[in-house]
Structures are given as C-alpha cells and as structure tokens.
C-alpha cells in the first residue's frame, strides 16, 4: 500500500480538545483510506475515546475539522445526521435497547437505513415488514444470536450485548464503522469469532476505525496503526513497523497494558 493514494474517506485535520485545562487531544491529524482498517492504540487516558467522540458529534473539538466524505463531522451536524451519511459506532459500553427483543434491536437500525431519520409510518403493521425481519434475523444468525431473537436485550451477557450492537451497526452497511473496544469483556473464544466476523465483512468496502487494547485483535485486523499517547499521535505506520517502533514501546512500557 502506498501513501500517495488520494482515496481518503476520513480526514482528521488539526483537532484539539481541552477539558478544563487538561489537553485531551492536541493537534491530531489522521487520514484513513477507504476500505481500510485503521487501529488506534495507546495507554488508558490517551484520548482514544475522546477522538472517536469528536467524530460522532458527541464532543465538539475546540479547533480543527473532521472531514468525512466531503462533510465536516465536527461542526453543524447532528448525531443522527452523521449516522445517516454512513457512520456507525460500537460503544465502549454497549448501547442497545435493553427493553426490546434482540430482533427489534436489529430491526430498528434497519428501519433507519431504509426510512431516514423520521418517517410517519404510524399505521403500518410491524408484522408486515417481513423483508426487514428476515434481514435482521440473518444478521443475528451471523453473530450467533438467532436463538435468542425473542429475548429482551437487557438480559444478555456483556459479550453478547457487544455482538448485538455490532449486528445493529452492520445491518446499516455503514461506510465508516467506529469500533470502541469491540471485544472487551469477551471470552477468548468469542473474541476470535468476532475477529473472524470482522475479517469476513471486509469485502463490503467498509472502512473501520478500531480502538483496542487487545494486541492480538489489533494485529489480526489493522492495515494501519496510530499510537496515541497523552492526547497526541506519537507514531503512525503499518503494523509491522509499529511493533518495532521505539517510541511506542516506551509509551506502553510505562503502563501495564501490553
């Protein structure tokens, strides 16, 4: 892969964010190529989640811009607007609909994809939406959740909630998928399954940004890795180069993560 390719889908340009004097992000510049998997690693409190939050209008950066497919995600766009132009996110703590069944959990994002941010489909029977239901079932099946399709999502284990959330994101066929520690809290066996799954859906041309502590996951999936420490990017390269990068070792050896 070469760097002089222009097909960047996401460009983070000079993003700064301060929380009451504490510099959470300082002058972040990051370009992510369409269809690639870009991992962001770094010790706890390095600003990884903060960075993702600025990408989905959960936080507004103090300065800088985040250009996705020609639009600035940092300013003048709502969370649902960001989703509607093709950005989905798996959160660090799973954000699902605990009071709804798994099936409905997955159908809701499918509706959003089909109908947009609001549709007055007040008097349509839900049960007539067979096509959507089948699609939702197939996604649940892919993630090994179809047996509990009628179960309330709130009763799932943490790992299952993560997989459910992943299914909810994938059914929208996002152009950009943001994964915030997608395998945290999963057993090794489930982690491996999730890695396989994420590998499988690569063909979609979906771009992925992944935050992960588990280096096994990172090196299995990432095309490129950025290392974040104390709010700044200290290295960005291909996985093999990152492994040998001295600064990275230093940043990590200080913490007990690796």
């Amino acid at each position: 892969m070469s760097d002089n390719d222009d097909s960047y889908i996401l460009e983070i340009i000079g993003v700064n964010k301060t929380f009451g004097g504490l510099k959470a992000l300082s002058n972040i510049n990051l370009k992510v190529k369409e269809g690639s998997t870009h991992a962001i690693i770094g010790p706890n409190g390095a600003g990884k989640s903060t960075l993702l939050n600025t990408c989905i209008a959960k936080l507004v950066p103090d300065s800088g811009s985040i250009i996705f497919a020609g639009r600035d995600l940092a300013h003048g766009i709502t969370p649902h607007g960001i989703n509607q132009i093709g950005v989905s996110r798996v959160f660090q703590t799973p954000e699902i609909f605990p009071k709804l069944s798994l099936l409905h959990n997955v159908m809701i994002p499918a509706f959003a994809k089909r109908d947009g941010f609001f549709r007055f489909n007040l008097f349509k029977w839900l049960r007539d939406e067979k096509k959507l239901k089948d699609e939702a079932m197939s996604y649940l099946d892919n993630l090994g959740l179809s047996d509990s399709a009628e179960v309330h999502a709130g009763s799932l284990s943490r790992g299952d909630k993560r997989r459910l959330e992943l299914a909810m994101c994938l059914i929208q066929h996002p152009k950009l998928l943001l994964l915030d520690e997608p395998t945290a809290g999963m057993a090794r066996h489930d982690t491996n399954r999730t890695i396989e799954l994420l590998k499988d859906i690569r063909e979609d041309g979906m771009t992925r940004i992944i935050i992960e502590h588990d280096m096994h996951v990172v090196f299995s999936l990432a095309d490129r890795i950025s290392v974040l420490a104390q709010g700044a990017i200290i290295a960005e390269d291909e996985p093999e180069a990152i492994k040998g990068h001295p600064g990275v070792r230093e940043a990590y050896l200080g913490s007990a993560e690796i």
Partner: peptide, 13 residues
C-alpha cells in the same frame, strides 16, 4: 424510551 442516545446514533431524530 429504552435508549435515546442509541436512537440518535442509529440515525433517528
């Protein structure tokens, strides 16, 4: 009712 945040990040207003 169940999760308004997720609703917004799922593309709904």
């Amino acid at each position: 009712k169940s999760n308004q945040t997720r609703m917004e990040y799922t593309g709904y207003n």
